[in-house]
Design a protein around this nucleic acid. Structure first.
Lengths: 191, 191, 191, 191
DNA sequence: ACTTAAACGAGACGGTACGTCCAGTCTTAGT
DNA sequence: ACTAAGACTGGACGTACCGTCTCGTTTAAGT
């Protein structure tokens, strides 16, 4: 049955307010009440859309940041990795980093949310890397190995640094990490 | 001026209650109020000892888990790494994993706490790895490179998996990670 | 103008639900939302008919109780009063008492509703008593005095007892009250 | 065990705010939230003292109005009644009337509150009248009859008029009511 | 048959208050 | 100086009704 449709302007206002709030004040200060006040949207209208703060932040990140994921295919695994990592790291230095931290807070406290986050956001990003590795294997660049493990190598250090607020996620870090992953993917040295 | 000394029984009761609470109910439900109720200790007695939830959890983790850190020195970098990672991963599968998660939640929301956590807990752990690497370099096992970066490789994947509650932090993962770090530390393949 | 006519089944359903709700759960728990849910009628359909909770209850009372008002004319003031009071008190012991209480709640909180209630429900009841007194005066039973004051004597104690939920509105009370009003209406004793 | 005692300044601030609020805006607009805002006292501090709006209003009325009850003993039942009714009616024309109305709203919706109100406020007032009647009986002024019934006659009309917001509770009404009660108390005319 | 207009179920919406929870601080009295 | 006890402000929580507002659908009177 139809019923009055949700006002898309409110969707946008909520997400924008969430985004701005987290960016400016950090996740700790984020509250549904605050978002409602800031966006001029009624609290209930927010709860109607999102069951929890986590879902809301997940949606906000999805809306404002997720689409900018590059999916490089340069013909060289190293270049693919460098391109991806450079862009990903750059994003973490801005609002996207704040939102990722916020998502981490929720995931750490709620297994079910962690699972949802995984399938909706993390896994797609991992798939990008896996695809790069598969293509490299087809090209013979690397001797295939457990791709899931290498993906951990790609993203692990980034989250580690996000967690403890260590900066240094710069371009040279991206390059060094790409080299490391590459070396690991090639397997043990023969000589 | 003298005054009544703090009751050590309360210290223990607070830490025990915190530990049990987090283990049973998760960090989300943890509250000073709840700990006070559970331990029978008054709220104020807790605040007198710890300034925030984070400090309390930090102390609880320190008490129950920190002293078990191995600092291996086997004469072989790979063996050192495997020993450390196996023990560290094993700890994460128990209550220590819960408390680490809890600490991460606090760190993500409070930069000053993150800094404290870094110096008190994270950095000492990193130093252990750095020492291993330094010894390996002296032995000529590896051609020295930025040790900080390699430490990220060692701990990054673990935190990444803790974050999203992915199991698989088992002994074979430890071995594989040790091999990878080793390969990376040896630098690019010559052949 | 054409337009779809109101469904009389809904009118009935709304009033019945209101009646039942008040009887079962009391006026405090009564809400438009609740009536809508219970009757299966949409909220808007209720608001289309009644401007407020008070109007709704007024209608519900009118539908289920108002027509049973006796207008006795026995030829004796005392008999008239006893007949009226006995019937009125009996009604208050059932659902009609609940609804009267509900109307009082609304009247106490809304002067305009009080005025409406007065003209639509209270005044007609008072008129019945006034008519009885007028007839008695014509017959010479009593020496005419301010009828409005005597009406207060008739209904005042009833509302007083409804208000504080004191039972005792039984037939003997009706008889005693009738006698009292009669005595008062006859004026001061001569001897 | 001791614990910090409740701040009496808050008690006063809450009651004063309640009193003023009801007087100015009526019971319908009264809310705990509003009282908290107006008095500058935290909501929780109010809930700590009063379980419901009704209890609060009961306390507010008790504090600001109840002590002014006259307990006349003139030696003449009529004079006693006139004195009491004149003072009581006068009070109803001011804030006390508003608060009584508020109490009525609560009593009508909650039987247990009605019972409490009865014992704490209504019964003491009734006792005053019963005492007057008893004294008159001892003096031989009246031939004893059910005093409870006569008390209903005294207070019933007042509440009836409060309920429907009919003014006219003036001195002449008091005098007339006193005469009526007196006539009723003397029993049926002999001549 | 064909407009036209209102009623209808559905449900979103802003507004207001509810009663509860926790954070951290403060005040008392009792060791 | 510590303890237990508990009041206190501040702030947010999630829920409940209110009365109003779109929606799409249904029903009937007037063409």
């Amino acid at each position: 049955m139809p019923g009055r449709p949700r006002d898309p302007a409110l969707d946008a206002a909520i997400l924008r307010a969430t985004f701005e709030f987290v960016e400016e004040e950090g996740y700790r200060r984020l509250s549904i009440e605050g978002i409602a006040a800031r966006s001029g949207v009624h609290k209930q209208a927010i709860y109607r859309r999102y069951r929890s703060k986590g879902e809301l932040v997940l949606a906000a990140l999805g809306r404002f940041a997720a689409e900018r994921l590059p999916t490089p295919d340069t013909g060289s695994l190293r270049d693919d990795l460098v391109t991806l990592l450079t862009a990903t790291f750059a994003a973490q230095r801005g609002a996207s980093g704040q939102l990722n931290r916020a998502l981490a807070v929720e995931a750490l406290q709620d297994e079910r949310f962690a699972a949802r986050l995984w399938t909706e956001l993390i896994e797609p990003r991992r798939a990008v890397v896996r695809a790069m590795i598969d293509r490299a294997a087809e090209r013979g660049e690397i001797t295939g190995a457990n791709p899931d493990f290498f993906v951990d190598l790609v993203y692990g250090p980034m989250w580690y640094r996000l967690l403890f607020d260590i900066p240094a996620l710069d371009d040279s870090y991206a390059a060094r990490l790409a080299d490391t992953v590459l070396a690991a993917a090639r397997g043990p040295r023969t000589a």
